[in-house]
């Protein structure tokens, strides 16, 4: 049902659908007034700051103008051109960060998916100590990100970290393998984030699994379906909408993850893990180039809208007529 449709029905119910056009118009406004308690805070909390970010992205706000930021010089689209024009001075850093963020978020989501779904399938069945195990599974998710970052930094320290010790003991690598610098830093970040975030997919999958009636499985078994076939033809299709939401949210969360790369690699990270949020943070809060940081944030927002819109279109959320 659309908002307009709802308005008409309210009008009809109120007996206001007669020939008087002005009464008809005022009755149409009723649903909008009813929306205002949520719309006003939403505007103040979400849309006004977004509008400010957009405005700041068009200014040269930096250390010289922050004390009087309402008069920061207007530079138009300069920051967007500097970052997005392939010949612009900031393009290598900006595109490098977009690439790092996309690779990191997609890879992390891909790794968390089977782990989360597998754990959910395991703990959805009858299992001794199931309640305890369900709680234990959430531990990585509830550990603060900063603690998680420090923990994994220690694990991946060259020579002294557990990762290098284990690799050396198993003769799989050198004790002096670098994980916190160079190309392997991406894998270090992915492993750390997968460990911390797989319970999110697990929770979503478990919630979806619990909505599937047992008699559906009983019927399938009576018809002779094997467990793999049951998973493929019954379980997966029935949890797919929830998993889709989980994948979309998970990808967005990984893309926006700032704390973990910052704690693990600091403000001058290797190129492979110089993700967009970290780049934005360094530009805004370390080098004081707030206008550029805001422009990068706007571009990040547009990028992040992509998986969100794809999911909403695929699930047809908000299209209930």
């Amino acid at each position: 049902m659309t908002i307009k449709g709802a308005a008409l029905r309210v009008a009809v119910a109120a007996g206001l659908s007669g020939p008087r056009r002005s009464s008809h118009r005022s009755s149409i406004r009723v649903p909008y007034w009813l929306l205002s308690p949520s719309l006003i805070p939403l505007t103040l909390i979400v849309f006004v700051p977004m509008a400010f970010a957009l405005y700041i992205s068009l200014t040269g706000l930096n250390q010289n103008s922050i004390g009087d930021w309402t008069h920061a010089p207007f530079v138009g689209l300069k920051h967007y051109v500097d970052g997005l024009d392939p010949r612009g001075p900031l393009a290598p850093s900006f595109y490098g960060s977009i690439k790092a963020s996309v690779v990191f978020s997609v890879a992390t989501t891909l790794f968390t998916l089977p782990i989360g779904v597998g754990a959910a399938l395991l703990l959805n069945g009858q299992l001794r100590g199931r309640t305890f195990l369900r709680a234990v599974m959430l531990l990585p998710y509830i550990i603060p990100t900063f603690v998680n970052g420090i923990l994994w930094r220690l694990v991946f320290m060259t020579s002294t970290g557990i990762a290098d010790q284990i690799l050396a003991a198993l003769h799989l690598g050198s004790r002096d393998t670098f994980w916190l610098i160079g190309p392997r830093s991406l894998w270090a970040l992915i492993v750390a984030d997968v460990w911390a975030s797989w319970p999110f997919i697990y929770l979503m999958a478990l919630a979806a699994l619990q909505t599937i009636p047992a008699d559906v499985y009983d019927a399938a078994r009576i018809d002779g379906a094997t467990p793999p076939r049951i998973f493929r033809r019954i379980t997966l299709p029935l949890i797919a909408p929830t998993l889709g939401l989980g994948i979309a949210l998970s990808t967005i969360n990984h893309f926006n993850n700032f704390a973990l790369p910052y704690v693990m690699f600091g403000p001058t990270p290797p190129d492979e893990v110089n993700v967009l949020p970290l780049n934005i943070y360094v530009n805004s809060f370390i080098t004081f180039n707030l206008g550029l940081g805001a422009a990068m944030s706007v571009v990040a927002l547009v990028i992040m809208l992509t998986p969100a819109v794809i999911y909403l279109r695929a699930a047809r959320i908000g299209d209930t007529d």
Partner: peptide
């Protein structure tokens, strides 16, 4: 401040290669 960060980025990159 920006200069400090930029020097660090270049050194970090090449030091990684050496490492």
């Amino acid at each position: 401040g920006p200069l400090e960060v930029e020097v660090g980025k270049a050194i970090n990159k090449i030091a990684s290669q050496i490492g």
